[in-house]
Amino acid sequence: MSARTYLLLGPETGAKEQELKDIRAQLRAEYGPEIELSRFYPFETENGEIFTALYNNSLFSDHRLVILSQAEAVSASLATSLAEYLAHPVDTATLVIISSELFISAKIMKGVSKQNTKTFYDLLENQKADWIRNHFRKMGLSIKADAVELLIELTEDNTQELRTICNQLGLFWQISDKGRPIDEDDVETYVFHSRQEDAFTLFPSIAQGDLKKSLSSLHVILGSGDSQTAILLVSGLLWQFRRLLSIQEERETGTSESEAFAKAQVQLKSCPIRKPKDKSTYHAGLQYYEADAIRRIIALLAEADIQVKESGSELATLMLERLLYRIIKGKGKAMHEASFATFG
């Protein structure tokens, strides 16, 4: 079995992203900084596009990193083709297969060594409280039980968001030099303030197809000067479009909108929509974006997620402006494919 193939499984997104970064760093150390990167989703490679990327040598780099995300959704024919590749992989490319599931097609799993197969488990509900307390303890801080419960409630089972908010809140508390434990009011005040302008407040404008308002919100968000802002923004939008896709796919089966809201999920994790304001936002998104458009946008955001992590902050504004333009006006299509009108 080749050392150039990896299988990353499980629902814990943050840890898988770090593992992917580590793999890429190893390749850069071995082959130089110009590693060619391609990311595919099963619905994008039914005609063998991923194998073209794997087999074709690049003119610009000595090695290629090819990523297949959402591998739990591969068709039987694609699984067979991947198994054939895994039996005889090329040395000039590294293939990373990613899934939020614990198991995928046996044909694929058998083709990747146990050493290069890793499973990343999400935090269980009863583990989150301990994780939060330990997280703040490591930062030299303490947090009250009611504040812990509110953090879990506000993040709505999104473990990645929970980690992000705890990191931000802890840093804020350290800088503010607070000499007392974090309580429920502190959490509510901080989260409300930090969400004044972020991916969650930007998404309603995107859902309505309002490019002008979306760009205005984007500039406010980026005005914070935080180097992590662009990364968190793209990650937040990716989470919301995955949620929107789950609803749109439910609607296509004949499910009522209210039932689809209750069944909403992100990477097979239940994320029901309960608040009237959120229902209004996602209703607008269902009207503006068809399922195929949402899939294209998810692929676009996944590419952007990698780009913003590697680009300097000076490029973030232009990159994210173009990203919003392609999402809202192009419905995820490439710039040359889309017919764009105005910024209205």
Rank of each mutant, 00 (worst) to 15 (best):
T159P: 01
K21E: 11
V234M: 07
L123Y: 14
I175P: 06
N126R: 08
I294G: 04
A230Y: 00
W173P: 02
K16E: 10
A29K: 10
D226R: 15
D226Y: 09
L37Y: 08
I132D: 07
A316W: 13
S81L: 13
T80S: 15
S75Y: 12
Y289V: 01
G236L: 05
K275W: 07
G10Q: 12
K118M: 04
K263A: 05
S227L: 08
E314G: 02
I327P: 12
D122F: 12
R133G: 02
L300M: 13
S235L: 12
Q208G: 08
L215F: 10
Y190R: 06
F203E: 09
F200T: 09
T342N: 10
K331C: 13
T45H: 07
Q267E: 14
L123F: 15
A3W: 03
L78T: 14
Y31I: 01
W131P: 06
Q174V: 08
L95A: 05
V187Q: 01
R195K: 07
A129P: 03
K212V: 09
A3Q: 09
M109L: 11
A262K: 05
A79E: 14
A79S: 15
L301P: 09
V96P: 00
S58I: 00
T13W: 07
N126D: 15
L86Q: 06
T5G: 03
Y288H: 13
N134E: 15
N134C: 06
E101A: 14
T281L: 01
H135P: 05
L102I: 13
A302F: 08
K178N: 15
Y288M: 13
N116E: 04
E34H: 00
R163A: 10
E310A: 08
Q265R: 09
H219N: 12
L9N: 02
G332K: 13
H63S: 05
E310T: 04
I294V: 12
E259Y: 06
T317Y: 13
M319C: 06
M335Y: 15
R64I: 01
D185K: 03
D130R: 11
I97M: 08
G344T: 15
T5P: 02
S256C: 02
P272T: 00
Y282E: 04
R137G: 14
L169G: 12
S246M: 05
K213L: 14
K107L: 15
A93Q: 06
D305M: 02
V96L: 04
E30H: 02
L300H: 10
S205C: 08
K213G: 12
F120T: 07
S256I: 02
A291G: 05
L78P: 13
A15M: 06
A199K: 03
S194K: 05
Q26S: 11
I132T: 07
L86D: 03
V90H: 10
K333Q: 15
G179L: 15
D130I: 11
S216F: 09
